[in-house]
């Protein structure tokens, strides 16, 4: 009996040593993507990026599977059931873009209790056992106004195009914009409409309010709505203000056309749909036994006047400007968060 204990200790020590080794350790692991919605171009690009990056990872044997599942109805109950199924199917990690920050917490807790690693991104969950790759939406809104304060030293009137009413992201970006306006003290928001992050809805809302507005110096947006705003200004025969753009191909194309025609200057700030691949690598790192802080922050995808052409060239016609993340990028994000 006495002699067996040191042996067990040695075995344990060897096992521990091995688990700190390279990525080959996750080669038997299976990761699932639980996605709540696929009905717009951003989500389609997100799924394509996931597919591209994870299929390469599977081929190289980094993980054994990385399957994507999307719910049909964008409903909490449906996604909760989906997560429960994924637990039963024995996935080692579930990467979630959640339909609700709180609604899935029960299912997420079940997954954690079953020993499954849960990593949420974009639509993050609040359950403490899960990892969160969140976006600092407030900073995103503020960056827009800070840029405008530089561009337009005299300030002026702003038209704000918001997203979908009642959604957390919309409130955060808008709060950031209002903070920026208060801080710079140069601008006045004279109108605010909801464009639902969609070109045609934004176009309609702006066309309605525009006739009653004074001269507009700039339009602050939330992405996906810049081109619609530009169309509405054109239809109303008003001078084109500085419109902050999102990352859709038609927004960038319009910007490029204006830049070539009359040196139009603006900027674009958005979240790359490839953030799903960042979540994938974070899940892989957690499975690999690395120490990863629970709260991580995604870098913005910012496009400026001088790197517009470069970004436009890499954006698929009709698609969304995108960045796919590598294992090294994930490690950098993790170490930036103090992991």
């Amino acid at each position: 009996m006495m002699r067996r204990i040191p042996t067990a200790l040695i075995v344990a020590a060897l096992a521990l040593g091995a688990s700190n080794q390279a990525i080959a350790d996750t080669s038997g692991k299976r990761i699932a993507l639980s996605n709540n919605y696929a009905g717009n171009s951003w989500r389609q690009a997100m799924l394509r990026s996931w597919d591209k990056v994870t299929s390469q990872a599977v081929e190289k044997g980094v993980v054994s599977a990385a399957d994507a599942f999307t719910t049909a109805e964008n409903q909490v109950t449906e996604q909760a059931a989906q997560i429960q199924n994924l637990i039963l199917q024995g996935y080692d990690a579930i990467v979630i873009n959640a339909a609700s920050p709180e609604g899935l917490n029960g299912a997420v807790k079940e997954a954690c209790d079953a020993g499954v690693t849960v990593v949420s991104f974009d639509g993050v969950v609040t359950e403490p056992c899960a990892w969160r790759i969140a976006v600092d939406f407030k900073q995103m809104g503020k960056d827009e106004v800070l840029y405008l304060a530089d561009r337009l030293p005299d300030g002026g009137n702003l038209l704000e195009i918001r997203g979908l009413a009642g959604v957390f992201v919309d409130d955060e970006i808008s709060a950031g914009i209002h903070d920026g306006v208060a801080e710079t003290g140069k601008f006045k928001i004279v109108g605010s409409v909801h464009g639902n992050w969609a070109q045609d809805v934004a176009q309609k809302a702006v066309a309605g309010i525009l006739p009653s507005l004074p001269e507009i110096a700039a339009v602050v947006t939330q992405g996906g709505d810049g081109y619609g705003a530009a169309q509405a200004f054109k239809a109303a025969g008003r001078p084109t203000p500085v419109i902050v753009m999102g990352n859709r191909h038609d927004e960038l194309t319009w910007w490029k056309e204006q830049k070539d025609a009359n040196n139009y200057e603006t900027m674009s700030v958005s979240i790359a749909p490839g953030v799903s691949t960042l979540a994938f690598w974070v899940a892989q790192q957690v499975l690999d036994g690395q120490s990863v802080p629970k709260d991580l922050v995604v870098p913005f995808l910012r496009i400026d006047q001088d790197n517009l052409e470069e970004n436009l060239a890499t954006t698929e016609a009709g698609g969304v400007a995108n960045v796919e993340y590598s294992l090294e990028d994930a490690k950098a994000v993790i170490s930036a968060a103090g992991g």
Binding site: N40, Q199, D200, G228, Q231, G318
Partner: peptide, 15 residues
Amino acid sequence: LGAFSGGAALNMGEE
């Protein structure tokens, strides 16, 4: 609507 708003989007019919 696709012609009017510069292309067809997946969520164009939502509202």
